[in-house]
């Protein structure tokens, strides 16, 4: 489970193994120390280990490559939207169902308060335990999820509430039912309608930004990514399978896809990076919640300065200008 004091978290990423060893050593010494008579002997040693742990953590996370970033984004202990909602949203009033087919648990929608603002929240849901994960298809939404999102965003428009979306999906669900019920049409409609929705929209990619499934709730006035989130046209595994003919080249694909937050800022596909606590959001979720809440409040305050027609126009121009090409 996530915690703030560097104890082992059950699941460790490959590149974090050396950190895990130090954490185990510290834990052993601490347990010895608690036995009478040893206190003085271990204090200095523990302090030293803690220091090298902090240094190593800084060093490891200071130069994460794209593939390592993807692994952090998928860390099982990484905060999910349900955690952010619990921590940052007061009086959350969930609204269910797309009024067409069903209620997709892979996308949560509802009213809530963030700081001084009443908002309409739309968030991918990956699920915490196995049962939830299966119900949410591991964060892969069906058409009814996208249609639920759109119907609630229309509510927000009707009642003048800004929309906040939290993106965390490997991609829209690729299944028989999803295709039968028009996955492509559902996403396409969201893109079109979000581009002209007459309320402010802010989006944060908190974990995985997988392709059209992410963009389907991501056409916003301001788009941020958490420092160790990824956002790309395809998952690294999918890209590797097609272009390298083997999913084993996912690390290479991750690098080539320029899918990190910083790379996305560079190419102009997102606006801002929200820095994570040292060692990733899963090491200090509280700090992550605070940063996310602060960013949302600040951004909504900024956007409130604009008349809505002007804001929608700027939103259009923002996406209109995306892309890079040559022109004689």
């Amino acid at each position: 489970m996530p915690n703030g004091n560097n104890k082992p978290m059950g699941y460790q990423l490959e590149f974090e193994k050396p950190l895990l060893q130090l954490e185990e050593q510290i834990a052993v010494l601490e347990s010895h120390q608690q036995q009478a008579g040893h206190a003085e002997d271990f204090n200095a040693e523990i302090k030293k280990l803690r220091q090298s742990h902090a240094t190593m953590l800084k060093k490891t996370y200071g130069k994460l490559n794209a593939w390592q970033t993807v692994q952090v984004a998928r860390h099982p202990a990484r905060p999910q939207s349900v955690d952010y909602i619990g921590a940052c949203v007061k009086d959350f009033c969930e609204l269910h169902g797309d009024r067409r087919f069903g209620d997709d648990p892979a996308i949560t929608t509802g009213f809530g308060r963030i700081g001084p603002y009443k908002v309409l929240l739309v968030a991918h849901q990956k699920g915490k335990d196995t049962r939830q994960k299966i119900a949410c298809h591991f964060g892969c939404a069906h058409p009814e999820g996208y249609r639920k999102a759109l119907s609630k965003m229309k509510l927000a428009e009707k009642f003048g509430l800004p929309v906040v979306t939290l993106i965390d999906t490997p991609g829209a669900y690729p299944g028989i039912g999803a295709e039968e019920r028009g996955q492509a049409e559902a996403i396409a409609l969201n893109l079109r309608e979000m581009s002209r929705l007459k309320v402010p929209i802010v989006s944060i990619v908190i974990g995985e930004g997988g392709s059209g499934g992410a963009l389907g709730i991501g056409v916003a006035d301001r788009i941020a990514m958490m420092q160790y989130a990824w956002y790309s046209v395809i998952s690294p595994e999918g890209c590797a399978a097609i272009l390298w003919k083997t999913g084993a080249k996912a690390a290479d694909a991750a690098e080539q896809l320029h899918l990190t937050a910083r790379e996305n800022v560079k190419i102009g596909t997102i606006d801002e990076v929200i820095d994570e606590p040292l060692g990733g959001a899963h090491r200090d979720p509280k700090a992550a919640y605070e940063k996310v809440e602060a960013w949302i409040v600040q951004t909504l305050r900024d956007l409130n300065r604009f008349k809505i027609d002007n804001l929608v126009k700027r939103r259009y121009e923002k996406f209109r200008n995306m892309g890079q090409f040559a022109e004689a």
Binding site: L191, R196, L215, V219, S232, I234, R315
Partner: peptide, 26 residues
């Protein structure tokens, strides 16, 4: 589909073209 070699830039063409169609539709 979207062209993988331009990654998120390709992805955003989905939003861009759909936004243009929204205006046309308006």
């Amino acid at each position: 589909g979207a062209r993988m070699q331009e990654s998120a830039l390709s992805l955003m063409q989905m939003a861009k073209t759909s936004a243009a169609l929204a205006r046309f539709d308006d």
